[in-house]
Amino acid sequence: MLDWLANAPTWYIIRYLGIISYMLLTAGLCLGIVYGFPHWNGKTKASLYKLHTWLTNGGTAIGLLHGVAPVIDTYMPFDWSGVLIPFTAAHRPVLTGLGTLAGYGLLILIFTSDIKTRLGKKLWLAIHLSAYPVFAMAFIHGFFLGTDSASPGIRIMYVTSIAAVLALTAARGLARRKPRQELISAGGKSR
Score class of each variant (00 low, 15 high):
Pro38Asn: 03
Pro38Ser: 04
Cys30Ser: 14
Gly105Tyr: 06
Ser151Pro: 00
Phe139Gly: 03
His128Ala: 07
Arg180Val: 10
Leu31Ser: 05
Leu5Arg: 04
Asn41Tyr: 06
Phe78Met: 12
Arg15Trp: 07
Val34Asp: 04
Gly146Ser: 03
Leu166His: 01
His39Gly: 10
Ile140Cys: 05
Tyr22Cys: 03
Ala136Gln: 03
Ser190Ile: 07
Trp4Gly: 01
Lys121Ile: 10
Thr56Ser: 15
Ser130Asp: 07
Ala46Val: 01
Leu166Pro: 01
Lys45Trp: 00
Trp11Val: 14
Tyr75Gln: 11
Leu51Trp: 11
Arg118Met: 12
Leu5Val: 11
Ile162Cys: 08
Gly59Leu: 02
Ile62Phe: 04
Gln181Ile: 15
Leu65Thr: 00
His141Glu: 03
Tyr12His: 14
Gly82Phe: 08
Leu5Ile: 13
Phe111Leu: 11
Ala27Cys: 05
Ile115Tyr: 13
Thr160Gly: 11
Leu183Phe: 00
Thr100Glu: 01
Ile156Gln: 11
Val134Ser: 02
Ile14Gln: 09
Leu106Trp: 10
Lys189Ser: 12
Gly173Leu: 08
Glu182Asp: 14
Gly103Ser: 09
Gly146Phe: 06
Ala138Gln: 07
Pro9His: 11
Leu29Gln: 05
Ala131Cys: 07
Thr74Trp: 00
Val134Ile: 15
Ala8Asp: 02
Thr112Lys: 03
Leu2Phe: 11
Ser185His: 10
Ala46Glu: 12
Arg191Phe: 13
Lys178Asn: 09
Phe143Met: 08
Tyr12Glu: 01
Leu174Thr: 00
Thr117Glu: 15
Leu5Met: 13
Arg15Asp: 07
Pro86Leu: 02
Gly99Trp: 04
Ser130Arg: 03
Leu174Phe: 13
Phe144Cys: 01
Met157Leu: 15
Lys122Met: 06
Leu2Asp: 09
Gly120Asn: 01
Ile85Met: 11
Gly97Pro: 08
Ser149Trp: 04
Gly18Arg: 08
Ser21Ala: 15
Glu182Gln: 14
Leu119Ile: 04
Ala89Thr: 04
Thr88Tyr: 08
Leu95His: 08
Val83Gln: 02
Leu31Ala: 06
Cys30Phe: 01
Leu51Asp: 01
Thr147Leu: 11
Pro133Cys: 06
Ile115Asn: 04
Tyr158Asn: 06
Ser47Ile: 06
Leu24Phe: 14
Ile72Phe: 09
Gly97Glu: 05
Ala46His: 09
Pro152Asn: 03
Ile184Leu: 11
Ile20Gly: 03
Leu129Arg: 13
Arg92Gln: 14
Thr147Lys: 14
Met23Ser: 15
Thr44Val: 13
Val83His: 02
Ser130Lys: 00
Trp11Met: 09
Leu17Met: 12
Ile85Ala: 08
Ser185Val: 10
Ser130Leu: 15
Leu24Arg: 01
Phe37Ile: 02
Gly103Ile: 05
Thr160Arg: 08
Gly187Arg: 02
Gly42Asp: 12
Thr26Cys: 13
Gly173Tyr: 12
Tyr35Asp: 14
Ile140Ala: 14
Leu174Glu: 00
Leu98Arg: 07
Gly28Phe: 05
Pro179Gly: 02
Ala150Asp: 09
Thr160Gln: 08
Gly18Ser: 08
Val71Tyr: 13
Arg191Ser: 09
Met137Thr: 08
Ile85Asn: 02
Pro152Ile: 04
Thr160Trp: 09
Leu119Met: 10
Leu64Trp: 10
Leu129Lys: 13
Ile33Trp: 07
Ile140Thr: 14
His91Tyr: 15
Lys189Cys: 00
Leu101Val: 13
Asn7Cys: 02
Thr112Met: 09
Trp11Leu: 11
Leu109Gly: 08
His141Thr: 07
